[in-house]
Simulated assay, not measured.
Amino acid sequence: MRDELFNPDNTALLTRANPLAKLIAVVLVTFTLAASIDWVSASVALALELLLLPLAGMSLVALARRGWPLAVAIILGGWSTAIVAEDSGAILLNLGYVDITEGSLTAAVAITARSFAVALPGILLMVSTDPTDLADSLAQQAKLPHRFVLGTLAAMRLIGLMIEEWRTLGMARRARGVGSMGSPWARFKANLSQAFGLLVQSIRRASRLAVTMEARGFGGEHRTWARKATYAGMDVVVVLGGVLVAGAAMAAAMHLNTWNLVWG
């Protein structure tokens, strides 16, 4: 079955770029966004990242379909920030047990926008990059240890398999009448039991995979490569694109005097 998570569109521009160049661009943007907590830099970065979606062969609809669980988690995190953040300014909403003020709402917006802006580059990298190509670049060009690279490759390949196994376990349990009936609490406990079963199965699969890779000589000192990882002019543009997004976000925040270093 087709892997829905790692299924790059070969006609998209970012798909043809070097994976290491895309990773460098992601790191540049992420580091800039992690350096400051303000809503301006996060909003600017997020707007520019959304404009890059077509370059990865992705639309807003496809992004929502793939990333809605992450979006829900980010929004809940923003709401939690609004509740626990320090109160300042006028009271906008009184919930009885807590007040939502201008200061706490600003902090919540900043955290929510920043979380989306940090997550989106990773999604773009993931949907536009084949795991094997990324592993080749990390080993050949970044010179990372083979064992680390191959372990990362195996983990990325198993993510899609785990998603499919979760669906299979769910259908098998529903066929036995488990998890599809009862109160919300009963269904929650059934899903928790299913998650534990998937965890056990994943550990067993990882152990077998590790033994198999070790037996076949993965991680040895001398390796040959079926595909040579190289740089091209497009890769320079990709890195410069990361610099542009990070620089624009930082410049906008500094211009509006909202740049706020986390260690300042």
Results as ranks from 00 to 15, higher is better:
Met213Trp: 02
Gly177Pro: 07
Ala12Pro: 05
Thr224Arg: 05
Met254Lys: 15
Phe116Leu: 14
Val211Phe: 13
Ala107Asn: 12
Asn18Ile: 15
Phe218Asn: 09
Val127Pro: 13
Glu221His: 14
His255Val: 04
Thr230Trp: 04
Ser207Tyr: 12
Glu164Gly: 14
Asp38Val: 00
Met1Lys: 06
His222Ile: 13
Ala45Ile: 02
Val243Leu: 14
Gly122Ala: 10
Met126Ile: 11
Ser180Cys: 15
Val61Tyr: 10
Trp39Gly: 03
Ser36Asp: 02
Glu214Val: 03
Val239Cys: 05
Met181Phe: 12
Leu240Ile: 12
Asn10Tyr: 14
Leu93His: 02
Gly122Ile: 13
Asp3Met: 01
Ala229Asp: 01
Ala90Met: 04
Asp130Asn: 13
Gly89Phe: 15
Ala35Arg: 08
Val236Glu: 00
Met213Ser: 11
Asp136Arg: 15
Ser80Val: 10
Val118Arg: 00
Val44Ala: 07
Thr168Pro: 01
Arg173His: 09
Leu153Asn: 06
Glu102Tyr: 10
Ala82Glu: 01
Thr129Trp: 05
Glu86Met: 14
Ala64Ile: 00
Met126Thr: 15
Ala45Pro: 08
Ser137Arg: 09
Ala45Val: 06
Gly177Ser: 04
Arg66Thr: 02
Ala253Pro: 09
Ala186Asn: 14
Gln194Asn: 09
Arg204Leu: 04
Arg16Cys: 05
Ala249Asn: 02
Tyr97Leu: 11
Thr15Phe: 07
Asn18Leu: 07
Leu52Arg: 07
Gln140Ser: 04
Val243Ser: 09
Ser128Arg: 11
